[in-house]
Design a protein around this nucleic acid. Structure first.
Lengths: 213, 213
DNA sequence: TGCCAAGTATGACGTCCGACCTACAATGCA
DNA sequence: TGCATTGTAGGTCGGACGTCATACTTGGCA
């Protein structure tokens, strides 16, 4: 049945899930083939670049899903604190529901591959840039200035990534919930986030803005 | 030179460094052997449990180093904000100095191995418990109540872990510094952290304390 | 002092599994 | 019907983990 099969797309989705749950090295090509039901011989037809190309596609797909998750969580939120909580609930549910296997879709790959692959590194950076942008845009709708919104977005991303690691290590949701609630609470009671407050000592400290963007 | 060689210790130190920089799967036994100068045949004499036992030893060693780092950073600090900054400087220096290869000593292994190995999972949990304890104890010296100190420790650990991921992905220190500075700043200007402030709405929210410990 | 035994350490080897390549089949279009 | 493009199964090569027979050193004893 040649001429356009959906094998490629199915492989990317299966790979994204496996990379997220197990990581890059623990996921064999044969695992992706089995999970997707794709034929074995097609791999290097669909992905001439091999496993790394498959990873690149999976990373981009993860970027899409993160953006969608932020958008979904933002519905009905009235401030950064409630957005953090809404996102935290979504992530916590998936973490618990998967038996502490499903964390961030790209974190494992970042740590495994970023030091080795300049190419994939730029893909990772894109995903975080998209995530940062989605969060910052949402924060700005609540009258947070762009600079502070970016700083806050970095802090929020970091807490989510890190809390996932700590909770996955302990196989216990409490560290995650404590970190998320602590962040939401701090952010909620921080008046300097809002535009018009003392800009002499802006949130995020002095001279610490992005140099590359 | 049989009868007590230091091969075992050297292998653990080399493995800890390699696991930290490259991760578990990307580090071959032969890499550890080469880096430590130990002979190939000694591996299963010193580590009958194989690579996993070597990893367990390396994880414990990482726990020691983290405790020492917290103690070193705490010297001369007058509050949680300055401790966060001091730790941040130490970590940032190593991250930059290593070309964004040296992050958290165990984070990569947590994501790679925690879903698969119940045994190593408990080792990871021990390291984070030690780290949490070291931070919380230090916070308590600044009149922060034990419950809030634990919540704050989880938040701090999460920010460090997550910020390392984001910065390693981008190969840029700015996201790390933004997150650390944002955290330090929030913590510094949070009066509810101190004992004696309105305990009706404690920092960290309600009903979110550790259930297992 | 010379020898033996036990524990210690080691280089060479086997086995398995991973990614990747090559030769072949099937289909749509001219 | 013939050809180019798409899709496929089996096979190969390399490397990593783990094992084994062997050599070396130390301590005790005659």
């Amino acid at each position: 049945m040649p001429r356009r099969s959906d094998s490629r797309s199915r492989m990317i989705h299966a790979a994204a899930r496996l990379f997220r749950d197990r990581g890059y090295y623990a996921t064999a090509f044969s695992d992706v083939i089995q999970a997707s039901g794709a034929p074995r011989g097609s791999t290097y037809f669909h992905f001439p670049g091999g496993k790394q190309e498959l990873a690149r596609e999976a990373i981009a797909l993860a970027g899409d899903e993160i953006e969608q998750m932020v958008a979904a969580a933002a519905v009905g939120c009235e401030g950064p604190g409630s957005l953090v909580r809404a996102l935290g609930d979504m992530v916590a549910d998936r973490l618990e529901g998967s038996g502490y296997r499903s964390g961030c879709a790209i974190a494992t790959m970042v740590l495994e591959l970023a030091p080795q692959s300049e190419d994939l590194s730029s893909e990772f950076e894109k995903v975080f840039a998209r995530w940062r942008h989605a969060l910052a845009r949402q924060f700005e709708t609540w009258r947070i200035t762009p600079g502070r919104a970016t700083d806050l977005a970095d802090l929020v991303m970091s807490v989510f990534e890190g809390a996932l690691i700590v909770s996955r290590a302990a196989r216990d949701i409490d560290p995650f919930r404590r970190a998320i609630e602590g962040l939401a609470d701090l952010v909620e009671h921080e008046p300097r986030l809002l535009a018009g407050s003392s800009q002499a000592a802006p949130f995020g400290g002095a001279g610490c803005h992005q140099g590359t963007g």
